[in-house]
Computed example of a mutant assay.
Amino acid sequence: MIAAEPDDPIMLSALQHWSYCPRQYALIHLEQAFNDNVHTMRGNAVHKRVDEPGFETFEGVRSERSLRVWSEQLGLIGKCDVVEFYPDGRIHPVEYKHGKKRIKTHDDLQLAAQAICLEEMTGKPVTHGSIYHHSSRRRREVAITAALRLQVEEAVAAIRLLLASNVLPPPANDARCKECSLKDICQPEVLSRKSVYQAEQAKLYVIDD
């Protein structure tokens, strides 16, 4: 596989990776490194049905599964798990996640990016979307606000800068690492101890006036 270039289209899923942890994004999209763990395998199981392209109609609402979307303006490409098209013209993307119902900014960012793509493709406003939390069997509606749209634009700009630099960001070494499938590859504890060691070593050579 070939690592992404700064001008390449950015995958919608990459926005979620970057928002969760820039180093995780870089390991996946620069280093082409990936491992599965229980969380990623559960996510794959949840997506199994919606990853199959198709549609169904219920009470006038057409639900498209695995719908390919893109934005030429932001240079985004990917797919929506489900997009609901209502008789009154409303368009409502739905992103499937395996966990319990709770707010996660990185999930909302990915959903907002889907909404931006759908708006550009259809010429219609997309004001809301939903995260379907599989463990809770419940939806969490998300308003696609101006602030959330700005976060998408800032994330895209940050990702392009990271791609241009071709440098891995430092590890987070916090609570996020516990659930990350790349923990063994990233080695956040080891690298963090190394940084502390280097800082202490540098102090040995500081000459006081």
Rank of each mutant, 00 (worst) to 15 (best):
I2D: 05
I2P: 00
A3T: 09
A3G: 08
A4M: 10
P6W: 11
P9W: 01
I10L: 15
A14F: 02
L15C: 04
S19G: 10
Y20I: 08
C21Q: 06
R23K: 09
R23I: 05
Q24H: 13
A26N: 02
I28N: 01
I28F: 06
H29S: 05
H29W: 14
L30E: 01
L30Y: 00
E31W: 08
Q32P: 00
A33N: 11
A33F: 11
D36Y: 09
V38K: 00
H39I: 13
T40R: 13
R42K: 15
N44A: 15
A45W: 09
V46Y: 01
H47C: 07
H47D: 03
R49S: 14
E52P: 04
P53C: 00
F55D: 12
E56Q: 09
T57M: 12
T57K: 08
F58N: 06
E59R: 11
V61F: 00
R62N: 06
S63Q: 08
S63N: 05
S63F: 03
S63A: 10
E64R: 08
E64F: 03
R65W: 06
R68K: 03
V69N: 01
V69S: 00
W70H: 09
E72Q: 15
Q73N: 10
L76I: 06
I77T: 06
G78A: 01
C80N: 06
V82I: 12
V83E: 06
V83C: 07
G89C: 07
G89A: 08
R90N: 13
I91T: 02
I91K: 00
H92V: 07
H92M: 07
P93Y: 00
V94L: 04
V94I: 15
E95M: 04
E95A: 10
Y96I: 03
Y96P: 01
H98F: 11
G99I: 11
K101L: 15
K104D: 11
T105K: 14
Q110P: 10
A112W: 04
A112P: 02
Q114N: 11
E119L: 02
E120K: 06
G123Y: 00
G123P: 04
K124D: 07
K124A: 07
V126E: 04
G129W: 10
G129E: 08
I131F: 03
Y132E: 04
H134L: 11
S135N: 09
S136I: 02
S136Y: 03
R137A: 12
R139S: 05
E141I: 13
E141R: 13
V142I: 04
V142D: 01
A143F: 02
I144Y: 10
T145N: 09
T145C: 08
A146L: 12
A146D: 15
A147V: 09
L148H: 05
L148M: 07
L148T: 04
L148C: 06
R149T: 07
R149F: 05
L150K: 15
E153C: 13
V156A: 08
A157K: 05
A158L: 04
L161V: 14
A164F: 01
S165W: 09
P170I: 13
N173F: 14
A175N: 12
R176A: 09
E179K: 14
C180A: 06
L182F: 03
K183W: 07
D184S: 14
D184M: 07
P188S: 02
V190C: 02
K194Y: 13
K194G: 10
S195G: 14
S195K: 15
V196P: 06
E200C: 08
Q201A: 13
A202V: 01
K203S: 11
Y205H: 14
I207A: 09
I207Q: 11
D209V: 10
D209A: 09
D209K: 10
